[in-house]
Design a protein around this nucleic acid. Structure first.
Lengths: 150, 150
DNA sequence: CTTTTTAAAATTGCATACAATTTAATTTTA
DNA sequence: TAAAATTAAATTGTATGCAATTTTAAAAAG
């Protein structure tokens, strides 16, 4: 009984990739109502919690770089949800701060996680298991570059 | 003890989204060696297995639509890895067939899953658990549109 | 104190993703 | 059978993602 190492469904990566895409897609109708994309939504989630932080730190939290964040933050600023300003202490840093309007949006967003939960019929303990495993993988990646492994 | 429903780390979706992104990123150095992107790689994986199929079926397998696949398949065709041709039976269908060169590429790709495995330090049984849960979610999504849930 | 190095954003270029629309072909209906 | 509905790809437009480069500022080295 030979196992095909290149069969799509034998890879862990593929269900991860597909599942993430499909779950994110479930958010769309709800996010449309508040005028955010998914990436903008997770960015606002950090802003609702932190109120203010620089692009670098925000990127570490979201696993995104400035190439993605810069244009995204400009859009959020144009929508009036955040303010971007150079730090006076260290002018290399751009500080992102949530605006009044951004704070207000939180009220409309607060129901979304619950609504999404009902879209994904999975037991709480399974969610917990999944959650722990995903963070385990996330934590172990980036620790080392495995390309130079002999 | 209040739980913040909008805290980034309390969402299942975020670790899923971030983990998928980071794991896919780990493939890059290996895929660079054979000249494929990740999406092209999973497409070739299906082609190596199926040899020939139409765009629609390929899309169902990969959870991708023609908007993504059409340009991607054109690039693979330009690289000589596949052949695209309209079905003579039903001219709405485009049949994608693997080429000789595409078949040959499999030899170079076959080591990739193993190499990746060593980048992700996680026990086999955990992989299995994760795998089952991800497919459970994937299977339950698309069954129903949950927006109209009262 | 000047040069070099490092660091943070921004920019550039390429490759997805996906909703929405269009086009062309096939099926179903009336 | 002719019109209407459905279907498969392709096209269009918008929004990521990310590697690589550039720009500007701060820190470290000599």
């Amino acid at each position: 009984m030979e196992i095909n190492p290149l069969k799509l469904e034998n890879q862990l990566c593929f269900p991860l990739y597909a599942c993430a895409k499909e779950v994110v897609r479930q958010y769309k109708p709800f996010l449309d109502e508040i005028g955010l994309t998914y990436t903008q939504y997770i960015t606002m989630m950090v802003m609702w919690e932190e109120k203010s932080m620089n692009v670098k730190t925000l990127g570490e939290r979201l696993y995104l770089d400035s190439g993605t964040l810069t244009p995204l933050l400009k859009k959020l600023e144009k929508q009036g949800l955040i303010i971007r300003q150079r730090s006076t202490e260290d002018e290399r840093n751009v500080i992102v701060t949530i605006s009044e309007e951004g704070e207000n949006l939180r009220q409309k967003a607060v129901e979304i996680p619950l609504k999404l939960g009902s879209c994904i019929p999975i037991a709480m303990e399974e969610v917990q298991t999944l959650y722990v495993l995903l963070y385990k993988i996330l934590g172990s990646i980036n620790k080392q570059d495995c390309t130079d492994k002999k």
